Simulated scan of single mutants.
Amino acid sequence: MRTFQFATALAVSLVCTAIPVHAQAPASHDYPSRPIRMIVPFPAGGPTDLLARVVGQRMGELMRQPIVVDNKPGANTIIGADAVAKAAPDGYTLLMAIDNTLVMNQYLYAKLPYDPVQDLEPIGKVATTPLVVMTHQAGPQSMQALVAQARAGAGALSYGFGTFTSQLSGELLKRTLGKEVVSVPYKGSAGTTQSLLTKDVTFTIDGITTAMPHFEKGTLRPLARLSAKPIPTLPNVPSMSDVGIKLPDIDVWMALLAPKGTPAAVVNELNRALTQALASKDVQEKLLGAGLLADASSPQALRSFIASEAARWRPVISEAGIRID
């Protein structure tokens, strides 16, 4: 009898082991049955972190399970993205990614540990944030003054950045200026903003989330936006074209993804909660106050958008000659 029970148990164990991980994922009517982890590939305090916390809280309320933000910064968002790519595709590990996680990194690294298309499942676009050239109190009074200072060679200029989108923007701006500008990397917007407050760099190119309180106090000054669209909270900030500088229309966008193989029913449930959260007026107001514009989409639309952005930025990055390894 014991021999039969052991053999039966062993057979069941072997069958379960042979079943693919995604086939063992929970049925949609049981999902979610426990807390969900949302990985943010940046330190706490930046725009992506704030976005994840505001949207994650509302999604958790709608799904009746808490969504816990887990910050995994480093390596140009690779550490956080790779953790999600290798997680079980059961809907309990999500990634709040930005554009360079899903588009630019694949053209910067010879060996990327994750494939943004093959390893991640789109859930939906979440938000966009405009990029702004900004300086400190003692810096240039306007974008035109910064350009004049650069072209006159009046002292060394430096700029700080916390994401590759900001770095790429800075490289394109340097080419337009025709002058050497020292680039200084930081981990996310919190470090970038602090470097400007302490006057370690002349200017930064970044989203406006962490800088907004300092704009209001007058300790930091926005000079120009890289997006063609006006910024609702900074209506008087000119575009690059307004000040005679030709650059691509650039902003930073964020999206929510899961590991590849996550069941369609679970992806649809997450998209439903995400869409409802972003439609909430109080969520939109919190995001707008931080310089983030809610921007929902379907999983299919996000997949197409990622492909179009990849086609857009690949030649730009190649022409700029930027490689990290």
Rank of each mutant, 00 (worst) to 15 (best):
Q167V: 02
S166T: 06
D99T: 08
R225E: 01
F161S: 06
S142W: 06
K174W: 00
G188W: 02
V103I: 07
L172W: 01
T128Y: 00
L157I: 04
V132F: 02
P185C: 07
T219C: 09
A228V: 12
E180S: 13
Y109R: 13
G188E: 04
P122D: 03
T198Y: 04
G207K: 12
A228E: 02
I208T: 15
Q149V: 06
K125A: 11
L112I: 10
L197K: 13
A145S: 07
S169G: 14
T233Y: 08
T233S: 13
V117D: 00
A224L: 08
H214Y: 14
V147E: 01
L223R: 11
T233I: 13
M212V: 15
T128W: 02
D200G: 15
F161G: 10
R175W: 01
P213R: 06
P222Y: 00
A156Y: 00
H136W: 06
V126K: 13
L157E: 02
T210G: 09
L172S: 00
S158V: 07
N105L: 05
Q118P: 06
T135Y: 04
L112E: 10
G139R: 12
Y159R: 06
M134W: 02
K199P: 03
M96F: 07
I98E: 10
L177F: 03
L120F: 05
D206W: 03
M212E: 06
G178Y: 03
A127W: 01
H136I: 04
M104S: 14
S189T: 07
K179S: 07
T165C: 06
F203P: 04
P113S: 10
F164N: 13
K187L: 14
V126M: 14
V147T: 12
V147A: 13
N105Q: 06
R151H: 05
G218D: 02
P122C: 12
G188H: 09
R221G: 09
Q149I: 11
Q137W: 01
D99M: 09
R151G: 11
P222M: 00
D119E: 05
P130E: 04
V133N: 08
V132Q: 09
G162I: 03
T129Q: 05
T233H: 10
D99V: 08
A156M: 13
A127P: 08
L197N: 15
Q141W: 09
K217E: 14
M104P: 00
S189W: 03
P238Q: 14
R151K: 14
Y186W: 00
A150L: 08
G170T: 09
A190R: 08
L223E: 12
Q194D: 12
L108Q: 04
A148G: 01
P140T: 05
Q144I: 14
E216K: 15
M212I: 15
G155M: 09
T198H: 11
A138V: 05
I231K: 15
V147N: 01
G178H: 07
S183F: 03
T198M: 09
K217Y: 05
S169N: 07
S227L: 01
G155D: 04
P185L: 02
N105K: 11
T163D: 04
A138G: 14
M143K: 10
N100P: 00
H136P: 07
D119F: 05
F161W: 08
D115W: 10
A150V: 00
S166N: 09
V181T: 02
L177Q: 00
I231A: 08
G178Q: 01
H214A: 13
T202F: 00
G218I: 05
L146F: 14
K199G: 03
A148F: 05
G170M: 07
S189H: 12
Y107F: 15
M212F: 11
Q149C: 07
